[in-house]
């Protein structure tokens, strides 16, 4: 019998390991490695995607308050109607061009940046709608596994009734809420220390 047909339940997950310091040419090549094709970048929404274009940016800082110049963020979000480009969200979508996924490394100053659209509200547990939000995975040198967090928007009244924010101690909720200035929303990710970002056990 060939190994191809020998089906067995795996003993467990493949464990995570750090992306290390040298992921850029493989995952976020950009202009520095122009000969490497890009599979994903920080341009989440093509120009002209229906809805409100926004920039999502901020710094990643460590427990000493220093910028993290070798982190990588990935985001996953719904479209402006709150629908995900995924078969398990069977609701029709206004546009098929929005994938909802993006990836950004950090600059020498620790800054990440996405060009995207403001998401809509999405279904939540127990039939309660969630406030508009973006799911974030943070990777980096010195990070043995990704950390999951969310970005909410400070101009959304529905934050007050969001079932996930409600699980976060009130004093720490501001670490999840980006502040608006024009079309730019800014939120720093603090990996450790004072005002440490809330990370989720998912």
């Amino acid at each position: 019998m060939s190994t191809e047909t020998a089906e067995a339940r795996p003993d467990g997950l493949s464990p995570s390991q750090t992306v290390g310091p040298f992921f850029h040419y493989g995952l976020t090549p950009g202009a520095a490695y122009g000969h490497v094709p890009v599979s994903v970048d920080g341009q989440v929404a093509a120009p002209g995607t229906p809805s409100e274009p926004i920039v999502l940016t901020g710094r990643v800082v460590d427990g000493a308050g220093d910028p993290v110049p070798d982190a990588m963020l990935e985001i996953w979000q719904a479209d402006s109607d709150g629908r995900y480009a995924h078969p398990d969200d069977g609701r029709p979508r206004a546009s098929n061009s929005f994938t909802g996924f993006g990836r950004s490394d950090t600059t020498a100053e620790g800054v990440y940046r996405f060009t995207t659209i403001k998401p809509g509200r999405v279904p939540g547990p127990g039939g309660r709608e969630q406030a508009p939000h973006v799911l974030v995975a943070v990777f980096g040198r010195g990070m043995l596994k990704q950390l999951f967090t969310r970005i909410y928007f400070d101009d959304e009244a529905s934050n007050a009734e969001d079932p996930i924010l409600a699980l976060v101690p009130a004093g720490r909720r501001p670490t999840l809420i980006a502040r608006r200035d024009g079309d730019t929303f800014t939120l720093d990710i603090r990996l450790q220390g004072g005002d440490e970002t809330v990370f989720f056990d998912v």
Partner: peptide
């Protein structure tokens, strides 16, 4: 300096 010290929030 890059690992969170606060417990993760179960959701």
């Amino acid at each position: 300096l890059r690992a969170p010290r606060e417990p993760l929030v179960l959701v």
